[in-house]
């Protein structure tokens, strides 16, 4: 039952992502992607990672994708303003490349089939997760937290930009 659900969710996720990639309107694209990430969160849950599933929804869907939407709206990317999106000439090499990579990856994956799944599903609870995160990987957490701080500072610096200085800088 769970496996069937998993395959359905996988199909939904890939389909949503494909629509996202091919969609011209960025707002639509982000909405499609949100859909795909919901499906992905459920897949995480099925794979025994409930915490990750929750964070996928909270962080990715709730924060990052909304941030994308927010920026798209701030920049007022109306469809008419968008450049003519690529014709098929541009798609062909990209698709060829993607297809080759896909084939190679699948070949590698199925080259050496692993033994079937080890026993029942292993659900990782918050306690076990927390012990691993703040015990074994405490240093990594510190490093990542620093990176977040730097990113915040950098984003603030870039956002300080004054549009009225644009003409002066272009002249220089």
């Amino acid at each position: 039952m769970a496996s069937i659900l998993f395959y359905i969710l996988g199909f939904v996720m890939l389909a949503a992502t494909l629509l996202c990639v091919t969609c011209r309107n960025p707002v639509h694209a982000v909405i499609y992607l949100v859909k795909g990430f919901f499906a992905l969160a459920l897949m995480f849950y099925l794979l025994g990672a409930p915490l990750i599933a929750a964070w996928e929804v909270i962080v990715y869907v709730g924060a990052i994708m909304v941030l994308f939407l927010f920026i798209i709206m701030v920049l007022e990317l109306a469809p008419r303003e968008q450049p003519q999106e690529p014709g098929w000439q541009r798609w062909v090499p990209g698709l060829l490349l993607a297809a080759s990579i896909m084939i190679c990856t699948l070949l590698i994956i199925f080259q050496d089939p692993s033994a079937a799944s080890h026993g029942p599903n292993h659900f990782v609870g918050p306690r076990e997760f927390g012990e691993a995160l703040f015990g074994k990987y405490a240093l990594a957490v510190e490093v990542v937290s620093f990176q977040l701080l730097f990113a915040a500072v950098g984003a603030y610096y870039l956002g300080r930009y004054q549009p009225r200085r644009r003409n002066e800088e272009d002249q220089t």
């Binding site: 990672a49 915490l51 990750i52 964070w55 996928e56 962080v59 990715y60 924060a63 990052i64 941030l67 994308f68 920026i71 990782v124 997760f129 691993a132 995160l133 074994k136 990987y137 990594a140 957490v141 990542v144 937290s145 990176q147 977040l148 730097f150 990113a151 915040a152 950098g154 984003a155 603030y156 870039l158 956002g159």
Partner: peptide, 20 residues
């Protein structure tokens, strides 16, 4: 799963800078 959490944090910072 721990790595996924770290990945999310890094993604968040990357997106913040990139969108700015």
């Amino acid at each position: 799963q721990v790595f996924v959490v770290l990945l999310m944090a890094i993604t968040a910072s990357e997106v913040a800078v990139a969108l700015a």
